[in-house]
Design a protein around this nucleic acid. Structure first.
Lengths: 205, 205
DNA sequence: TGTACATCAGTGAACGCGCGTTCACTGATGTAC
DNA sequence: TGTACATCAGTGAACGCGCGTTCACTGATGTAC
């Protein structure tokens, strides 16, 4: 019962592409695989994305929107607890959307500047992190505020990268001298406690 | 003047693959492109790598070895300055070897556990970071030590991800409310100073 | 309200490419006697 | 030292596949009169 004109194809393509990207990895996301999965002719996506990279950029943009939604605290008086919860949401997002997260921060989309909406959305995500922090800290100095925000962001971003490999580095043949395995396990078993300790350290500094 | 038997092909393939990976991106690294660039028949690499993923794993392993070399301080009494220098080396490595770094920490090599040498090398890299820190801190408690090391590692890892996008987010159409751009510029213009401030915060916590 | 026509969004065939992998092979090397 | 032979490392042809992209097209929609 499909009509020749879809009416809402672009949105549907982006949402479908996001699914493929996360489910199969971004390497498997292609204009053809997308068309197939969307039950549309091979060339239909070209009406909406000039190149494959434009498609990647759209999926990355969508990813930043979701991250923003997951992380941004929509309230006035942010507490330390709120901030920790938001930070944990960031890490959870990165772990649960590993492939998309890689697309957003990796080298696949080489030059963000070619995709203004991507830049805007990525910046908005960062802004929401700063807003969270500023509402909590009541810090006025913008330099201090954004400096601390970068540090927090870096830490969260880094935790995603490390915790992600947690299971992967489990290995009987080599026992790390200091056990990054057991340490990451310990941390991720009580992530809020870890975050509280580290984040307050950064915030107070 | 080539002989039929190369004698040292595996090492040469790995080193060549590392070059391709960094120069063209890991997506462009294929068994065929590698064979071509190594002036060897298309199927020769199969003597040394059973699958493409095995090749990726070898390049990632090579990357960790280089990172280890770049970061590990080969001395007894590590000072704060040494530690900061080592940390800066980490970030520089990540920025200057973006594609390889992505391969090492991304989702491309899905399951490290299938490649024991990769796990071993990755763990050794982490160990060297802990060793650097322990020599500097003279901290005895292993849990505290490895916990702080993870935090430091996460921060450095995160800084790579963020600073990498620095130029990419430069954009006139959208001015971020708090300017991550100007902040990252400020930070990267004097990275050692920034690292000193943040790292001492983490270490003392 | 009806019609002519421009515009738009999706179709389907076709192009040429690089890829992973297999296979039977060949030339070089190492070893047992 | 010489020879037979097993083993090893590299070759070259071939397979089938999915891909990005182009092109001329067609059916639906919107609009001017």
């Amino acid at each position: 019962m499909k009509s020749y004109h879809h009416g809402n194809l672009k949105e549907e393509l982006i949402s479908c592409a996001s699914v493929i990207c996360e489910r199969d990895g971004y390497a498997k996301l292609s204009i053809r695989s997308l068309a197939k999965e969307s039950n549309v002719s091979q060339t239909a996506p070209y009406r909406h994305f000039k190149t494959k990279e434009e498609l990647y950029a759209a999926v990355a943009t969508e990813g930043f929107k979701k991250l923003h939604t997951a992380v941004f605290l929509q309230k006035q008086n942010v507490t330390l607890d709120d901030f920790i919860k938001s930070s944990k949401s960031y890490i959870d997002f990165g772990l649960q959307n590993a492939n998309t997260y890689d697309l957003m921060f990796g080298t696949v989309v080489g030059n963000f500047a070619e995709y203004p909406e991507l830049v805007e959305t990525a910046n908005k995500t960062f802004d929401s992190l700063v807003l969270n922090l500023s509402s909590f800290l009541k810090e006025k100095d913008e330099n201090i505020l954004s400096g601390k925000s970068i540090t927090v962001w870096a830490l969260l971003h880094g935790m995603v990268g490390i915790l992600r490999k947690q299971v992967l580095t489990e290995n009987d043949n080599y026992t790390s001298e200091f056990g990054p395995m057991s340490t990451t396990k310990r941390i991720s078993s009580d992530l809020p406690a870890y975050l509280e300790k580290v984040l307050t350290g950064i915030i107070k500094a």
